[in-house]
């Protein structure tokens, strides 16, 4: 047993930036948002974009266990040992906010088994507009909504839309078909979020996930810098 580091450090402060051996742990970014807004597709696209340069892993929090994890496995975005599914007992928001112990187990297990890691993406189960990540679990969080969910979501606000470190408005390619006003969404988001960033994405468009990947790289530079 190594006793040269404070023995209560790793468990007493779950957001501690260091691992028990003293090395800096991976940056953890949470992705939340309503059902069907494209969280899993965004995670998959981010993995494809970042996996060549960074050591990555993913934790999923499904409503039904393993569905999102299996989507990622089927699409072979990462080797299976880099994807962990956490069971949430029918309460996905509890697992990312109120009782984060299972998710902390999962991120630490990933660092132990496939580490060292640069980045761990923690994807929440599809939930409602109030679901946010605990600061004890993630260092930054992305909230993903989409234009098809209604262009009044940014105006309605809620903790996810208002406080997330990054707001993604996804599926912009669908806006003409569902009658969503992108400019209005941008205006409302600005009003709710002040200077916090908002990205409009279409994963099927020419830019794809690139702007989100750039934002993630920026977070990582700040984390390791």
């Amino acid at each position: 047993m190594h006793l040269h580091h404070s023995p209560d450090a790793p468990a007493a402060v779950s957001a501690d930036a260091h691992r028990p051996d003293g090395s800096r742990r991976a940056l953890r970014i949470g992705l939340g948002g309503p059902v069907g807004s494209g969280k899993t597709a965004t995670v998959a696209a981010l993995c494809r974009e970042l996996r060549d340069k960074l050591s990555l892993a993913v934790v999923t929090n499904d409503i039904y266990t393993r569905e999102d994890a299996e989507f990622l496995l089927r699409n072979a975005v990462l080797p299976p040992e880099r994807i962990q599914a956490v069971e949430t007992g029918a309460c996905p928001h509890t697992a990312i906010r109120d009782d984060i112990s299972a998710n902390l187990e999962a991120v630490e297990e990933l660092e132990d088994t496939v580490g060292p890691l640069d980045l761990i993406l923690v994807e929440s189960g599809g939930d409602n507009l109030t679901a946010t990540f605990s600061k004890g679990l993630v260092d930054a969080q992305i909230f993903v909504i989409d234009v098809a969910g209604g262009d009044d979501i940014p105006r309605k606000g809620g903790p996810g839309v208002t406080t997330a470190d990054l707001l993604i408005v996804n599926k912009t390619d669908l806006a003409p078909y569902v009658g969503s006003d992108l400019e209005r969404m941008a205006r409302d988001a600005k009003e709710q979020r002040g200077d916090l960033p908002v990205l409009f994405t279409s994963l099927t468009g020419p830019q794809g996930v690139a702007p989100v990947a750039d934002w993630v790289r920026g977070q990582l530079a700040a984390w390791t810098g």
């Binding site: 007992g89 509890t94 697992a95 109120d98 009782d99 984060i100 299972a102 187990e105």
Partner: peptide
């Protein structure tokens, strides 16, 4: 039941 020790994900 709110003690954050993971019990909520287990049905016994």
């Amino acid at each position: 039941g709110r003690f954050p020790a993971g019990g909520h994900a287990h049905s016994g």
